[in-house]
Computed example of a mutant assay.
Amino acid sequence: MCSKLHQLDYVSPIGLIEIIGTEEAVYSILFAERDQPVKLVEEGTPESLKLCLQELDEYFKGERFEFTFPYAYEGTDFQKTVWHALKEIPYAKTGSYKDIAATIGNEKAIRAVGSANGKNKLSIVIPCHRIIGSNGKLTGYAGGLWRKEWLLEHEKRFIGSRE
């Protein structure tokens, strides 16, 4: 990642989301701990960030179920494997760390999967909010459990329009 980093703020129904990326790709989509946007679309805002903002907006309106804007993640090979497996959890469905560990062929790596999940910087797009406990209860979420619950309910509300 040698290119200049740019930031763009998106005001979502569940708080401010900070998008960070380059001309080529988005690298981070995280909830910001502030109320007011600082960086809005302006001349020179990369297309990758503008497309991300547009697709997030469509997601929150219930019009988008998968993302196509260019994004990239940086991490260890194990983390990338976990994040790729997370992307396979369908919209409005859930899985557990145990499910992901089985998917990647390492059933004993439940804690390591949880750790990799927690290092995901592409919230919503790499859907770590779809991970729940094996007992069916909500588990930790960097954006807060209330946001996780909101995102899961949001997806359930709009899944019917997809079918």
Rank of each mutant, 00 (worst) to 15 (best):
E43W: 10
T45P: 07
T45R: 01
T45K: 02
T45Y: 00
P46V: 08
P46D: 02
S48H: 09
S48D: 13
K50T: 14
L51V: 15
L53H: 10
Q54M: 08
E55I: 13
D57T: 15
Y59Q: 15
K61F: 07
G62W: 00
R64H: 08
F65T: 13
E66I: 13
F67H: 08
Y71S: 09
Y71V: 08
A72G: 13
Y73C: 04
E74M: 15
E74L: 12
E74P: 09
G75P: 13
T76H: 06
F78C: 04
Q79H: 04
K80C: 06
H84M: 11
H84Q: 13
L86P: 02
K87L: 11
E88M: 15
E88G: 12
A92L: 00
A92M: 03
K93F: 04
T94N: 08
S96Q: 11
Y97Q: 04
Y97G: 01
Y97I: 06
Y97V: 05
K98G: 14
D99W: 01
D99Q: 03
I100Q: 05
I100K: 00
I104D: 09
E107G: 00
E107F: 07
E107H: 04
K108I: 06
K108M: 06
A109I: 02
A112C: 06
A112K: 03
V113F: 01
S115E: 09
S115F: 09
